[in-house]
């Protein structure tokens, strides 16, 4: 048992030290997910609205006129950057040049959230870009 503990302890120490030195290089990592989010007083959550209701990005089959790059999650206190990057890619891939016939109004932006010291969760919508789209 002592040998097992010693081997495990050496492995743990080596893994921690090397990871801190080299960073995120397989199989090492600093596992820094969410570590640097404490300076935020607001949280930004991407939203998409089509025809007046909230929709997921892949509910839209085509969009026109949206400034997809303006949704960049790094310019906002966003902790769900993956969802935004995937949404950006989807919208970019499904952007069409011409006006969409029979398209509905589409708006993309961020819900800005705050949690007060009394626990009150407040939300305001911050539209970033508008265009038209067709639901799938």
């Amino acid at each position: 048992m002592l040998t097992g503990t010693l081997i495990a302890l050496i492995a743990a120490v080596v893994y921690i030290v090397v990871s801190l030195l080299v960073g995120d290089r397989f199989p090492f990592s600093r596992y820094c997910m969410y570590a640097d989010l404490t300076t935020r007083s607001e949280g930004a959550v991407l939203y998409l609205k089509a025809a007046g209701r909230f929709v997921a990005p892949d509910e839209l089959g085509a969009v026109h006129g949206l400034d997809v790059e303006a949704l960049d999650p790094r310019s906002r206190p966003c902790s769900q950057q993956w969802l935004v990057y995937e949404a950006q890619r989807w919208l970019r891939d499904h952007s069409v040049e011409g006006e969409l016939e029979g398209g509905v109004d589409v708006e993309a932006g961020y819900r800005m959230l705050t949690v007060g010291s009394d626990g009150l969760v407040e939300e305001r919508l911050e539209p970033v870009t508008r265009g038209t789209g067709r639901l799938r």
Binding site: G4, I7, A8, I10, A11, A12
Partner: peptide
């Protein structure tokens, strides 16, 4: 045990 150490 080294695998356990890495997990820790």
């Amino acid at each position: 045990n080294a695998g356990c150490g890495v997990m820790a």
